[in-house]
């Protein structure tokens, strides 16, 4: 892998973590509370701040990827045909919405309930942003990326990073049901990622010379990373199950959840970093050109 891809690894993962947090927060934490008309705990505003921090880290690293960042404002000039131009616009829109949402929640904490629509819009902007991010890589000149596995991988990364982080965040304040559902997500996404791996590899082996090289890169050049990722997926599943069975309806016993939730989150984060490094390692031009 080229050292120049590191900023892209951090940029894509940080943005996807941010979107994942917003999406899971909206669907699995806020939505049940709104439906049952329960008051929002004040601490939940910190979730927005974490998502914002992740987006800011993403934006900073997106600049580090550029050889000549001084011209960066010009990158919005080709929205008509360039997915990169669209991505940069998407990042700006999503980050601005998140910034406004976070500021409003901190400035007017009592208005939290009436601001849910803003969180909905930000989450939808995030979903669109991840689609645009994946489209950047789906180009004929990069056969190993030009597949539906790319958007699938990006969405799964966002969901699992968001769910596992919020499970950790919810230890002292979440309801039994939302904790259980976050633990299920923390387990099921690595299970799907593991199950898809042989499908992806058989696709790689069957789809032309360049994709065949992709398989060689995975199994020979980056063999240690490949197996380390497998182990981390398995660890994430194991810690996820441990967390699932540590969730008690008696919230005074919730501290039991801390260790497995922390370990599951760490394993998932490490697995996603390696997964993304391997993704960029497969930056292969068609047939060696």
């Amino acid at each position: 892998m080229k050292s120049s891809e590191w900023p892209l690894v951090i940029f894509t993962l940080a943005m996807q973590l941010s979107v994942g947090i917003m999406l899971i927060y909206d669907l699995f934490i806020l939505f049940p509370l709104y439906r049952s008309r329960v008051a929002l705990p004040m601490k939940y505003h910190w979730i927005l701040l974490i998502a914002l921090l992740a987006a800011i880290i993403g934006v900073i690293f997106s600049f580090l990827h550029l050889g000549n960042p001084a011209n960066a404002p010009r990158s919005l000039s080709n929205i008509g045909t360039s997915w990169l131009s669209r991505e940069i616009s998407g990042v700006l829109i999503y980050s601005s919405l998140l910034l406004v949402t976070t500021i409003l929640h901190f400035v007017m904490p009592s208005a939290g309930r009436s601001l849910k629509w803003l969180i909905d819009i930000t989450a939808v902007a995030g979903i669109i942003l991840i689609f645009i991010m994946s489209r950047i890589y789906m180009i004929p000149a990069r056969p190993t990326w030009n597949t539906f596995f790319t958007p699938l991988g990006f969405y799964m990364a966002a969901i699992v990073m968001g769910a596992s982080l919020l499970l950790l965040f919810q230890i002292n304040q979440g309801s039994w049901a939302s904790q259980k559902s976050l633990a299920v997500l923390t387990i099921s996404i690595p299970v799907i990622q593991l199950a898809l791996l042989p499908v992806y590899m058989s696709w790689l082996s069957q789809s032309g010379i360049a994709s065949g090289q992709g398989l060689t890169i995975l199994l020979q050049n980056h063999m240690i990373a490949f197996y380390l990722r497998l182990i981390l997926y398995l660890l994430a599943i194991a810690f996820g199950f441990w967390a699932f069975f540590s969730i008690r309806s008696d919230t005074t016993q919730n501290r039991l959840l801390f260790t497995p939730a922390l370990l599951a989150w760490a394993a998932i984060l490490a697995a996603q970093i390696i997964d993304r490094l391997l993704f960029y390692a497969q930056n292969i031009s068609p047939d060696g050109f």
């Binding site: 120049s4 050889g67 990158s75 990169l84 000149a141």
Partner: peptide, 15 residues
């Protein structure tokens, strides 16, 4: 004008 994003390098099938 170039920002050095290298996206053209990815997009060109001929290197």
């Amino acid at each position: 004008i170039c920002i050095g994003c290298r996206y053209c390098e990815w997009a060109c099938p001929y290197g």
